[in-house]
Amino acid sequence: MKIIVCIKQVPDTNEVRIDPIKGTLIREGVPSIINPDDLCGLEAALALKDAHGFHITALSMGPPQADVALREALAMGCDAAFLVSDRAFGGADTWATSKTLAGAIQKLGFDLIITGRQAIDGDTAQVGPQIAEHLGIPQATYAHNVEKVCGENAFVVERLFEDCRQKVKVKAPCLITAISGAGAPRYMTVAGIVAAYDEKTVDMLTFEDLKGFVDEGDIGLKGSPTQVRKSYPKAAKGQGIVHEVSEDEAVEIIVNKLKEGGLI
């Protein structure tokens, strides 16, 4: 079986700060990481590899710097890595991103696709289901555990919703979106890192390489139905008063505030 894991390189949004004067996002010095849900997806795939010897391909679309993220995936144990990268793909919304990734996936061939649930920068959680739609395959979202069904080309997926847990069976070919599960993502090993840089390769896929799998009108800015009209840092709520006082005074302040608000 062949599994493709989609990984996105993202800025660590916990480190993103707002420039208090210009009011813009400060991105300099913010580390790039593999999107956290995608690490969960990689772990789910690698656990299947451990148990069944499946072949795992990591796939990313992004600028050439995303090479680092794919090397990390190789160092964790992936067998192959592809970077979909071309100026023509730039500015894509989730429709065009998913269409492009679906084209690459079709070219590479697959039985199972695993994406993260949500990327921490774009935060849409739309790319996984949209890849599944473009490929016309079933999806099982919010998966925290994936197991292969013995003797069948199918998986049992445990899903987590707001109010319930659900176990579903889904036949390959299919797509799963991963959330954090029982097993924490494994670390890269030293041997893995050496192999990722010395033995394994990250292969580039340009628009030219994907011709026949995705049309010019469906990629990049042109292929994107949505546009970002404007973006701005979230306005901080008017700051309240912070008291550094004794515990008894603190209690008094709170009690008075609750009385004032008619809450007691």
Binding site: T124, A125, Q126, P129, E133, Q139, T141, E162, P225
Partner: peptide, 23 residues
Amino acid sequence: ATYIGRDLGPRIAARIKTGLTAD
């Protein structure tokens, strides 16, 4: 934008080829 809505919405938008703004 519930779990169900965010599972269903992207699938519909991809099928009818239109944009979808999330959450």
